[in-house]
């Protein structure tokens, strides 16, 4: 099982390789980012982010997240106060979203 210290990461802490990810690593990434615990609601978003990235090669926008992840925009910001799109991408082990929206 990979641990945070054993995987390659970008200077901002995103995983270099999506395949290094597993659920325990996600919990470690979350703790490091100031989320002590991942609830079912967090997982809904994280799993959606990862699934979308693996299918489409790109992280969803905040608008798409709010419409399709099953979690509203309001709740997204409650779950990930420091910025849902970026933080959920980090926890999901996918690259930093580079869109402006």
């Amino acid at each position: 099982m990979p641990t945070l210290t054993a995987v390659a990461r970008t200077p901002e802490g995103f995983l270099e390789h999506v395949e290094d990810w597993d659920r325990e690593l996600a919990r470690e990434l979350a703790r490091e980012a100031g989320l002590p615990e991942l609830t079912d609601r967090h997982w809904l978003v994280v799993d959606y982010m990862r699934r979308t990235f693996l299918e489409k090669g790109d992280a969803p926008t905040i608008r798409t997240l709010g419409k399709e992840s099953g979690v509203s925009v309001k709740e997204l910001y409650q779950l990930f106060p420091k910025g849902p799109a970026k933080l959920a991408a980090k926890v999901a082990g996918i690259p930093k979203p580079h869109g402006c929206i």
Partner: peptide, 18 residues
């Protein structure tokens, strides 16, 4: 195409974001 919402929806999204 860039997933930028129309103005009314965008304003709502921004308000929902806090």
């Amino acid at each position: 195409k860039l997933d930028i919402p129309p103005i009314p929806e965008f304003i709502e999204l921004i308000a929902d974001s806090g």
